[in-house]
Amino acid sequence: MWAVIKKELKSYFSTPIGYIFIGVFLIAFSISFYFTVLQYGNVNFEYIYYSLPTILVLAFIIPLLTMRSFAEERKTGTEQLLLTSPLSITKITLGKFFAASIIAIITELITLMFFAILCFFGMPHLSTALATLLGFLLFMMAYIAFGMLASSITENQIIAGIISIAFFIITWVLPDFNSSLQSFSFINMFYKYTQGQIDIADTITFITFTITCLLLTITVMQRRKTAK
């Protein structure tokens, strides 16, 4: 599994994808920082995370990380190398998932820089900030897992990307149609973390969703062996 993680990370940074992901996210984050802190004089770190630019950009950059994962391997045929190696499909899938998650973690760590800046101006709430970071990470991991599932069902990266973005937007706007769909929205779930509360139910929902997507990905990959 380590081999896959290492290779995936190497790929992220030997192609522009890793840099684009981190760079674009930080640009959005900075814009958000500018509006919340400089315009409105708000020194709450969590407000920068829970803002339109940050979340909107997330919808488009997470698929960047995940859309290649299986689709490209299938298209170029390198899938044959992976699947005929003694590595199990579970390890391959987890390896790819953790590699993408590591990029997400790196990005979050860089945003701590903004937290440090805030400390100069006021007293941001540390525990709320940590809860926000945890919530955001769970949020991203759930989305990454879904993105990988999308990538495993097609050999076209673009389709995989569009499925992921569509999913994100649907879960985003769902509560607007009907308030009973509130609990299906990842963004609403994430909102509670930014209020400083780590809700057990939400945490479990994020984690179960992530695991379900990973299991489905593994199943899809295994099924493909027989359905050709």
Partner: peptide, 19 residues
Amino acid sequence: PLYTDLTVKEFVTYMAEIK
């Protein structure tokens, strides 16, 4: 099929790792 983002040595090493 090859991983085009890797160098020859990296590719062979990766194959050695997954094997």
